[in-house]
Design a protein around this nucleic acid. Structure first.
Ligand SMILES: [Mn+2]
Ligand SMILES: [Mn+2]
Ligand SMILES: [Zn+2]
Ligand SMILES: [Zn+2]
Lengths: 140, 140
DNA sequence: TGCTAATCAACAAGTCGTGCTAATTAGCAA
DNA sequence: TTGCTAATTAGCACGACTTGTTGATTAGCA
């Protein structure tokens, strides 16, 4: 994702108004590695701006997604998570606590075999599931 | 997934009754590579057994899933898909028509780097997205 | 044969996300 | 500064998917 300042410029170029709500969301996403859901982002936003609506958070995330500034990640476990990291990367997910971390896989593009003659791969998503160090500690 | 005959035995062992509905679902899943949703499986089932309920299809799929006989795959695009293939395999998905095919990746386990000290990987899911040969043909 | 699980219809509910409306606010261009 | 119009808000509804519940009926199997 671009910096909040660059996003402000980008939004103005596109004819979108630069509102305090949007700017707050830009700042909250900037450098955010938590892979938040819209809901959790809303909760943090509401602390700094009581009265902001969940609807607006969803709306701004959709705009950023359409602009390619954030990625949305569906791990199949409830709500979609939003990721300001749009580099080519993948994820590890702790099955116990649900934490999500970025990982980088360098053997890509991956080779595969199967009955998929002529299939043109555009993107590859890898999700590693398991148990994080903290959860392993607690259960030990 | 085991064969329908083996599943019948397995269900009886577990104290589950072997009903015509369950047996039909066993047969419909056997060798099924379509990665159907509960709904699509229900539609096919209803042709052969008018009156079977969607609820029962969901129920039986849950039982099979709990027994490890089917896998459920959430591609983040609507309903969960069910897969009687429980081998270690992965999927290609056509973004245009939604078709899902099995693929096998042999350079697993994959290496990755990131801020994930001490994370124990239990499973890896890979989804290749792109365009299938048929869709490429039609759009050309 | 009889106990009990399974099924069914019908409906509700929960989660996630979007749509809509009407009123208010406020960004920004002229 | 003014004025057009987008944006926000509250509030409610809805759609998709899945599970829960209830009460009546069916049927598996010991
Ligand atoms: Mn990420
Ligand atoms: Mn499969
Ligand atoms: Zn954990
Ligand atoms: Zn296709």
């Amino acid at each position: 994702m671009k910096t909040p300042e660059e996003l402000v410029a980008r939004f103005r170029e596109q004819g979108y108004k630069v509102t305090p709500q949007r700017q707050l969301i830009f700042r909250l996403l900037n450098g955010n590695t938590a892979h938040p859901t819209a809901e959790t982002l809303y909760e943090v936003a509401a602390e700094q701006m009581p009265g902001i609506s969940l609807r607006t958070v969803y709306q701004t995330l959709s705009e950023l997604s359409a602009m390619g500034e954030v990625q949305h990640i569906d791990l199949g476990s409830g709500a979609v998570r939003f990721d300001p990291n749009v580099d080519d990367h993948h994820h590890v997910v702790c099955s116990t606590c649900g934490v999500v971390h970025d990982v980088y896989v360098n053997q890509t593009p991956l080779q595969f075999e199967g009955d998929v003659e002529g299939f043109a791969v555009h993107s590859t998503r890898i999700v590693f599931s398991g148990e994080c160090a903290q959860c392993a500690h607690l259960s030990a």
